[in-house]
């Protein structure tokens, strides 16, 4: 193949793939440059803030609990606002129980959720919004986390903490950089609906065309760097 053809093909395939190539490069650069722990909202919350340093022995023991709920799974005794509670999955439903009496406790109200969030939150911004979400989880959290309290913070990146309305534990922390990351991921894999299917035909098509662009580009690179010192005929 002549150099003229290779340059021509590189030019035309580049024209077809230019926008998507730039999207891949820009979204890829964003994803590698942003610290993934920050994106996941880790620095917003410190689990250790809920810890208790003076523990009263629970009057209601694990043995009592298992006797009362033989089908329970994922049983744990956890610290929440200076008190120990049991949490367990019973018939697929997460519930909270008193560690004194073993009784089922109601969902957290707004104030309790705010108090729990305040304790776990590491920043200084004020909580400015709250919503109780029992069904139709927002797309930024998995549906299995509901019911949750969605608490919005007054900071530049619109941080939002999600508190389990059952346990009062922080189950998710989102902010604008996460939302942008999610959008970047969608653009990167070209699945504009579920944002998770990397096996879509549009991606196959554009990647194949990009492969041709890159291959002709590399061939052109060879052409451009060969015989550099050859004298120009006059």
């Amino acid at each position: 193949m002549t150099a003229t053809r290779i340059r021509l093909y590189h030019k035309w395939f580049a024209l077809i793939t230019a926008i998507q190539l730039l999207i891949w490069l820009a979204t890829g650069a964003y994803m590698v440059l942003m610290d993934i722990e920050f994106i996941r909202g880790k620095p917003l919350v410190n689990k250790a803030n809920t810890a208790m340093y003076q523990v009263d022995t629970p009057a209601y023991s694990f043995t009592d609990f298992i006797e009362a709920h033989p089908d329970a799974t994922d049983i744990s005794l956890y610290a929440h606002q200076g008190t120990l509670y049991y949490r367990a999955n019973i018939a697929g439903k997460l519930q909270r129980f008193s560690s004194k009496t073993g009784e089922v406790l109601p969902l957290l109200d707004k104030q309790q959720a705010l108090d729990a969030a305040q304790r776990g939150y590491t920043g200084r911004a004020k909580f400015i919004g709250s919503a109780f979400i029992e069904q139709n989880a927002p797309s930024e959290i998995p549906a299995r986390l509901i019911p949750v309290w969605q608490l919005t913070l007054d900071d530049a990146m619109h941080s939002t903490l999600y508190i389990s309305a059952v346990t009062g534990q922080v189950v998710s922390a989102r902010h604008d950089y996460w939302r942008l990351f999610d959008l970047m991921w969608m653009l990167h894999i070209m699945d504009y609906e579920t944002r998770e299917n990397v096996h879509n035909p549009l991606l196959t098509l554009m990647t194949s065309l990009a492969l041709l662009t890159a291959l002709f580009g590399i061939a052109l690179s060879y052409i451009s760097f060969r015989n550099q010192n050859r004298e120009e005929p006059v």
């Binding site: 208790m52 340093y53 003076q54 523990v55 694990f62 744990s76 610290a79 120990l84």
Partner: peptide, 11 residues
């Protein structure tokens, strides 16, 4: 272990 700060005891 309470001096270390108890977070959770899982079964």
């Amino acid at each position: 272990y309470q001096a270390e700060g108890i977070i959770e005891l899982k079964l």
